[in-house]
Structures are given as structure tokens and as C-alpha cells.
């Protein structure tokens, strides 16, 4: 098992954002996490990356307990996140953004990885000298994914990749995610757009009130009456 989360809880002051999350991800899976606004999805992502303090339960990655490990070490261990709202370094060039994505990697591999990124996202090559803040939303999303790939992660966390994108760009982004999954990358995807996320996922979880309440294959969840009612609007 690549990622294992047991009874994880986390609070913002007195408010419990995570309340006993149970979740497993096997190597090579594309796991989707769906749920309403405020269910704790982003908090869970932040906790996995180590930028959100937890106060109960634990996180195991690649067999090791990483509950107390710092955010920067988790990147070195192989966890990369594409954060909600993309969070590119807007005042820096596209190429510098990619370079910083490889902050934890040995110098020698960086040029090669940047070239790989340009093959995957040709538009980033065209805009390599441009400031990241001048890119369109879709291009920034590609850059954020590219930057996360630069760390050569074993597990990629994607937080709301469709947020703020036009339907066409949402399709494109999900095609990219699918391509990454097919190339063997383990992906954990958080989405409000439950239908799209569950359609490409091998497995999925539904989150409510800070805990995972349902688990199944993507198809099972799509067919589930409760999921249909609550998240798919049918």
C-alpha cells in the first residue's frame, strides 16, 4: 500500500475539519475523493502534504509513518501536490517555476525533466520566459501539474484541478490526468465535479463532515443512489 490514512483528525481552532478519516491508496491507482464544500477535502490534502497540523490518527507512506514528518521531507519521499487555485509563483518565469518544482532533485536530472515537461505541455515551452502570472488559467493549471511532476513524485495529489476552468479546459485537464495515470503515476484527486472525477477514477471515496463515509470503484459510486442524489444532481 502506498498511502494509508488511519483515524486522521485535524482542527482549525475549535472546529474539527477532519474527524477520523480512513483511506488507502495502492500503487498505480487513480483515487478520487468527492464531497460537498466544507467536507474537509482540501484539509485532508493539506494534511497529507504536511502543511496542515493533525491532532489524531496517522499517515503512512510507502510503509513509513510520516505523521510527524515535515512538508519539505514529504516532497523528498515522493508526495507532490498540485494545490487548489494552482498557486504558481506568478512573479517568476514559467521555467523558474519548473526549476523550483525540482528543488528536491539532483541538479543533473533537472534539464532532462524540464524537456519532458515541454513535450507533455508544448505551450509551456512557448511561454518559458513569460511570468507565470501572465498565463491563462488553463496554462497555469498545466504549469502547476508540470511543477509537481518535476519532483518525480510517487504519489501526486491534485486539489480541485477543474476549479475556475472553462468546460473545454476541464476536459483537457482531465485528459492530462488520465494520461499520467496510464503512464503508471499514482494519483489522488479531490474534486467537487464528482461526475468527471468518478468517471476516470479506479476507486473513489465520498467525504462528509470530516470523515470518509463511502468507498467503492468509480463506477459503483456513480451508480450509488446516495451519491447520485447528493453529488450528481440526478
Amino acid at each position: 500500500m502506498l498511502l494509508q490514512i488511519k483515524r486522521l483528525s485535524s482542527s482549525y481552532g475549535r472546529v474539527r475539519a477532519l474527524n477520523g478519516v480512513e483511506l488507502n491508496i495502492e500503487e498505480g491507482e487513480l483515487v478520487a475523493l468527492v464531497g460537498a464544500n466544507g467536507a474537509g477535502k482540501s484539509t485532508l490534502m493539506r494534511a497529507i502534504s504536511g502543511v496542515q497540523p493533525t491532532n489524531g490518527g496517522g499517515i503512512w507512506f510507502d510503509g513509513a509513518d510520516i505523521t510527524k514528518v515535515s512538508a519539505s521531507k514529504r516532497v523528498r519521499l515522493g508526495i507532490s501536490q498540485v494545490p487548489e487555485g494552482r498557486q504558481v509563483f506568478s512573479e517568476m518565469t514559467v521555467e523558474d517555476n519548473l526549476l523550483l518544482g525540482a528543488f528536491t532533485r539532483p541538479r543533473l536530472e533537472i534539464d532532462e525533466d524540464i524537456e519532458k515537461n515541454y513535450v507533455l505541455f508544448p505551450v509551456l515551452k512557448e511561454r518559458r520566459e513569460q511570468l507565470a502570472g501572465t498565463l491563462s488559467g488553463g496554462e497555469q493549471q498545466m504549469l502547476a501539474i508540470g511543477r509537481a511532476l518535476m519532483a518525480r513524485p510517487k504519489l501526486m495529489l491534485l486539489d480541485e484541478p477543474s476549479m475556475g476552468l472553462s468546460p473545454l479546459l476541464v476536459d483537457q485537464t482531465f485528459q492530462t490526468i488520465q494520461k499520467l495515470a496510464e503512464s503508471g503515476m499514482t494519483i489522488f484527486l479531490v474534486e467537487q465535479n464528482a461526475y468527471v472525477a468518478l468517471s476516470i477514477a479506479t476507486r473513489g471515496y465520498v467525504m462528509e463532515g470530516g470523515r470518509t463515509v463511502l468507498e467503492g470503484t468509480g463506477q459503483e459510486l456513480l451508480d450509488d443512489e446516495r451519491v447520485k442524489k447528493a453529488y450528481l444532481g440526478v
Binding site: V51, A71, S72, V75, Q87, F89, M92, L100, F103, A151
Partner: peptide, 10 residues
Amino acid sequence: FNPLAAELVG
């Protein structure tokens, strides 16, 4: 520029 993103790239 962005402390959170900096932490997330390690």
C-alpha cells in the same frame, strides 16, 4: 512570493 507553494515543492 508564495510560502505555501514553496513548502509544497519541498
